[in-house]
Design a protein around this nucleic acid. Structure first.
Lengths: 159, 159
DNA sequence: CGAGAGCTGTTCAAATTTGAACGGCAGGAG
DNA sequence: CTCCTGCCGTTCAAATTTGAACAGCTCTCG
């Protein structure tokens, strides 16, 4: 017997519009950032998260989780960005084994310069193409999808 | 002056629900396929596209475009899959410089075994979490986003 | 025919990512 | 205190991805 509930036409349309589109959009953003600023999208995101954090700093693991990135991958990228002066490593005060990644002034300046072009691109390829209704449906639906996956993985492990 | 049209709250919600969720979903699918079948998501997609093609075969470039992958990356993956017997290379009849990637019987068998678990996971993490309305909005909206990017890049280059 | 522009798929080195293994630290049970 | 389990960030080798460079082929214009 075949218990598999295959996707119907509408579901298939949604599926084929989801991952491929995300891949395309990510590629567009990556190119824009790389050409204009010499930053990868991941590096940009790192700056965004650090900049938004309490003291411009976050612990490595916390940052990796927010970025949906592996810890070792983050270690590598922070290394690159530290070399470029965008970020600095600092020991964590209350835990000898902890390390804080902290955004530098140069990092904040870079973010400030990069943000307008980035947001413009996000609008151009995604947001301005969507109707407000679609925008809301995506925020609600995909937000729920995201939260469920995160919640489900919380009881589990990391990477 | 600052002409930047920043994202309003709803747009930001959609943005923060899009790429991160796609990343998470892709990770889930990759894990499921790798654990259960030893296939990466990319390899699975290659099988899907070849299986759906006219004679179970596509030219390298055509396949790369559908997969949203670089040509060199595809060369590598086809190499891996050829080694594993899932795929075979065949010269293109009407063009000496062309190469066809063709799915093997073993490849079709693998796909048949992998598909149910894959679809089930797609439902579990994504489709079954969305309401029909959201599903439609995603299909319509993101489909439009995708088509615009593809169309815009057609006049341009490849990778 | 013959030069030239544009494809095709591959190659290569460099960059990045992955996942397991590791040494050091934290925190609770005995 | 001391062992033990678990977390932290890093390290490492292997896998993969990237992008430019390449050699061969195709097609068109002259």
């Amino acid at each position: 017997m075949d218990h598999t509930r295959w996707l119907d036409e509408e579901e298939m349309r949604a599926w084929l519009a989801f991952i491929p589109t995300a891949t395309l959009v990510a590629r567009e953003l990556d190119q824009q950032l790389k050409e204009d600023m010499g930053l990868s999208h991941l590096q940009y995101e790192i700056l965004v998260h650090l900049n938004a954090a309490e003291n411009g700093a976050l612990r490595m693991t916390a940052l990796a989780e927010r970025l949906i990135n592996s810890k070792s991958g983050l270690t590598y990228q922070i290394g690159q960005m530290e070399r470029d002066g965008l970020v600095r490593r600092r020991p964590c005060e209350w835990s000898k084994s902890g390390v804080l990644a902290e955004i530098t002034d140069e990092g904040r300046a870079m973010l400030e310069r990069a943000a307008p072009g980035h947001v413009e691109k996000v609008r151009e390829v995604l947001i301005d193409v969507l109707t407000p209704d679609e925008c809301k449906a995506i925020a609600d639906g995909l937000g729920r999808v995201r939260d469920r996956i995160i919640e489900r993985n919380d009881g589990g492990s990391c990477w």
